[in-house]
Deep mutational scan, measured.
Amino acid sequence: ETQAGIKEEIRRQEFLLNSLHRDLQGGIKDLSKEERLWEVQRILTALKRKLR
């Protein structure tokens, strides 16, 4: 995994995270989306740690 590859994956995950946040802010309670949001946040945290 290169730095560029990790950064690209971070961009993808952040896009997905923002999309999930928008969907959930629409007021629709969706447990699967909430679980996915937490999963994406965990992935992002792990990726950012790899960059250090």
Rank of each mutant, 00 (worst) to 15 (best):
E1V: 09
E1Q: 09
E1M: 11
T2D: 10
T2S: 07
Q3I: 15
A4M: 06
A4Q: 10
A4R: 09
G5C: 15
G5R: 14
G5E: 15
I6R: 01
I6Q: 01
K7S: 05
K7E: 07
K7Y: 08
K7T: 04
K7R: 13
E8H: 04
E9V: 05
E9P: 02
E9H: 08
E9F: 05
I10K: 01
I10F: 01
R11P: 01
R12Y: 09
R12G: 02
R12C: 07
R12Q: 08
Q13M: 15
Q13G: 03
E14S: 05
E14M: 11
F15L: 15
F15V: 13
F15T: 12
F15A: 15
L16W: 05
L16G: 00
L16P: 01
L16Y: 06
L17I: 04
L17Y: 10
L17P: 00
N18G: 06
N18I: 14
N18D: 13
S19E: 13
S19R: 13
S19D: 06
S19V: 10
S19K: 11
L20A: 01
L20N: 00
L20V: 01
L20C: 07
H21W: 14
H21P: 01
H21Q: 14
R22A: 13
R22C: 12
R22T: 09
D23F: 06
D23Y: 06
L24W: 04
L24K: 02
Q25N: 07
G26T: 09
G26Y: 09
G26S: 14
G26A: 08
G27H: 06
G27K: 02
G27Y: 03
G27M: 05
G27Q: 06
G27D: 10
G27E: 11
I28V: 13
I28E: 10
I28H: 08
K29I: 15
K29F: 15
K29A: 10
K29H: 11
K29G: 09
D30T: 03
D30L: 02
D30N: 06
D30C: 04
D30H: 06
L31F: 11
L31N: 09
L31I: 10
L31A: 14
S32F: 11
S32N: 13
S32C: 11
K33I: 15
K33E: 02
K33S: 06
E34G: 04
E34P: 02
E34K: 12
E35Q: 12
E35G: 04
R36P: 01
R36A: 13
R36M: 14
R36I: 05
L37T: 02
L37W: 05
L37S: 07
L37E: 01
L37Q: 02
L37N: 01
W38K: 14
W38S: 08
W38N: 12
E39F: 04
E39T: 04
E39R: 03
E39G: 03
V40L: 08
Q41W: 15
Q41E: 10
Q41G: 03
Q41D: 03
R42D: 04
R42T: 06
R42Y: 04
I43A: 06
I43Q: 08
I43P: 00
L44M: 02
L44K: 00
L44C: 02
T45I: 13
T45A: 13
T45R: 13
T45K: 11
T45V: 11
T45E: 14
A46T: 08
A46Y: 08
A46G: 06
L47T: 01
L47I: 01
L47D: 00
L47Q: 00
K48F: 07
K48N: 05
R49Y: 06
R49L: 11
K50I: 15
K50V: 08
K50W: 04
L51W: 04
L51V: 03
L51M: 03
L51I: 04
R52V: 14
